[in-house]
């Protein structure tokens, strides 16, 4: 049975080979620069750990991230899927971080949501709020992803009277794969792999209260 290759370069370089929920191999590199140097090495590493296993699906984290590195991961995923004749899908990296935090954490709810925040440079951050996992294990995003100044984010949270639980985990390709598998079960895994820059003209105004589907 074929395996899923997961790639994310929204922070460092992280690659994983997963089959049926089991992690066959993973390769994680923290450096937030040097994605072009590392991504193929990481891919080759995880493949070498499982000779004879074919990849029939590739999933990539689309960001948001301000780094040129994000594009390297997406380009690598695109080309790998072409060469391997595998299906190509994309997920939002913040959602994968949320999944890591929400697994086994029943304290999160819409009144006590999870806040995922990552560096967007230019003294801004990317954020998204989650109220928990749905029945298929897909994080329910109730706001974002959007780009915002930290002070404005604080204000917004005060305005809506929310003290969220802030995520502390970092993105991993294993999380990307788990999210993809959950979305597959939920029939909402997207083939869109465009990079999320989230600044104009594709900026999405974060509007608390509007349900943004997962």
């Amino acid at each position: 049975m074929g395996a899923m290759l997961a790639i994310d370069t929204s922070a460092g370089t992280t690659v994983a080979l997963v089959r049926n929920g089991e992690v066959i191999a993973e390769s994680n590199h923290d450096n937030t620069m040097g994605h072009a140097e590392t991504v193929a090495v990481a891919i080759a590493e995880v493949l070498a750990a499982a000779p004879g296993v074919g990849v029939n699906s590739v999933v990539v984290g689309r960001g948001p991230a301000p780094f040129t590195g994000l594009r390297v991961g997406i380009a690598a995923a695109m080309m790998f899927s072409q060469g391997a004749k595998a299906k190509l899908s994309g997920v939002i990296s913040l959602d994968a971080i949320a999944l890591l935090e929400l697994e086994g954490n029943s304290a999160i709810s819409s009144t006590n949501p999870l806040l995922v925040v990552t560096d967007a440079r230019r003294k801004e951050v990317y954020y998204a709020l989650y109220s928990g996992l749905n029945s298929h294990g897909v994080p329910i995003r109730i706001d974002g992803p959007a780009v915002i100044k930290p002070a404005a984010l604080e204000e917004m949270l005060i305005d809506i009277n929310i003290t969220p639980v802030t995520a502390t985990k970092s993105i991993t390709a294993v999380a990307i794969a788990k999210l993809a598998e959950a979305q597959l079960r939920d029939a909402c895994l997207s083939t869109d792999v465009t990079a999320l820059y989230l600044r104009q003209p594709d900026a999405v105004e974060g509007q608390f209260g509007k349900k943004v589907s997962g």
């Binding site: 072009a36 991504v39 891919i43 390297v72 991961g73 690598a76 080309m79 790998f80 060469g83 391997a84």
Partner: peptide, 19 residues
């Protein structure tokens, strides 16, 4: 241009590995 080159580099390497 570094950013532009990186996209090609990441893509090409990955294609080579897949093949």
């Amino acid at each position: 241009l570094a950013g532009a080159l990186m996209v090609g580099v990441g893509a090409a390497k990955s294609l080579a590995v897949s093949l």
